[in-house]
């Protein structure tokens, strides 16, 4: 047992575009006393639906980048030989290939390589309609260290947890790599949003393997369940065999696209139809 008062729910999918953000946004509308964090720092979208009022913007420094000072460089070639990321060619460091390991910086006999911290993104703190805390980030294009940025915004956000807080709601990134692991840290329950396509199922299984490896609890929502009822049945079979909660089956419905086009959550767009389903 832990003594914290809140539960952290993280929404993931493996495959992109299955409906993570659509569902997270609806959960955000339905839950009270919450902190909401968009951890898809590559391509954050949740703010487009929740329209937070931004109250703070902070710069993110993800790591350092090497840069050669040609006035000091004697062209000995050591840095180019040592770099394992093929980032140095003809006395120039390619900032996209440089992973900021600093090997060249420390090894250079002329101290000709600088190693400045580089701004690689920004993150925002905002308030939602009901005054609850909201965080999202923008990693600059092509930057690495997305997992580190996820950890940083989560750390920042948890600073605003009070005794009142009941929910931490995290919208996760696609995939199974480093930003997913960073999003999962501290999670009490994972909501998996999948779709009944062979690709959706394939990616779901890989993600479930990851969750089992790190012993996270999870339940599954099948979005667009009527697109392929055979695969939906296969997913339901998996939940029954593994004693996993089937949290919901959502139909393939035009309201989902139309509500998005208007920048609304599905529960706002057509409350009579969708509100009950989502809170159930």
């Amino acid at each position: 047992m832990h003594d914290k008062s809140y539960m952290q729910i993280t929404v993931l999918s493996g495959k992109g575009g299955t409906g993570k953000t659509t569902f997270t946004a609806s959960f955000a509308k339905l839950l009270q006393k919450k902190v909401v964090i968009d951890c898809d720092v590559d391509a954050a979208n949740l703010h487009l639906l929740l329209n937070p009022e931004i109250i703070m913007e902070k710069e993110y420094y993800g790591g350092r980048k090497a840069e050669i000072d040609l006035l000091k460089c004697t062209d000995c070639g050591l840095c180019e030989n040592l770099c394992r990321f093929q980032a140095i060619k003809e006395l120039k460091v390619d900032p996209i290939s440089c992973e900021g390991c600093g090997l060249c910086v420390r090894a250079c006999p002329e101290n000709a390589i600088s190693f400045e911290l580089k701004k690689s993104g920004v993150y925002f703190r905002g308030n939602l309609e009901d005054k609850s805390e909201f965080y999202y980030a923008k990693l600059f294009p092509g930057e690495g260290n997305s997992g580190k940025l996820v950890s940083e915004i989560k750390k920042e956000a948890t600073g605003f947890i009070t005794e009142e807080t009941e929910w931490i709601l995290v919208d996760g990134p696609p995939g199974i790599g480093c930003p997913v692991n960073a999003s999962l840290a501290g999670t009490d329950y994972v909501v998996l949003v999948t779709e009944p396509t062979l690709a959706g199922l394939h990616d779901l299984k890989r993600l479930i393997d990851l969750l089992n490896t790190f012993k996270y609890r999870y339940g599954i929502i099948v979005n667009k369940y009527d697109l392929n009822e055979d695969i939906t049945k296969e997913i339901i079979d998996i939940t029954e065999k593994t004693d996993t909660a089937l949290l919901g089956l959502m139909p393939f419905h035009e309201d989902f696209v139309h509500s998005l086009q208007q920048g609304k959550t599905i529960v706002e767009y057509n409350p009579a139809k969708w509100r009950r389903t989502e809170s159930g």
Partner: peptide
């Protein structure tokens, strides 16, 4: 390419 705009996307498209 993978989705997103970070290092793995750039690594794929470059």
């Amino acid at each position: 390419s993978p989705p997103g705009t970070s290092c793995s996307m750039v690594e794929s498209v470059k």
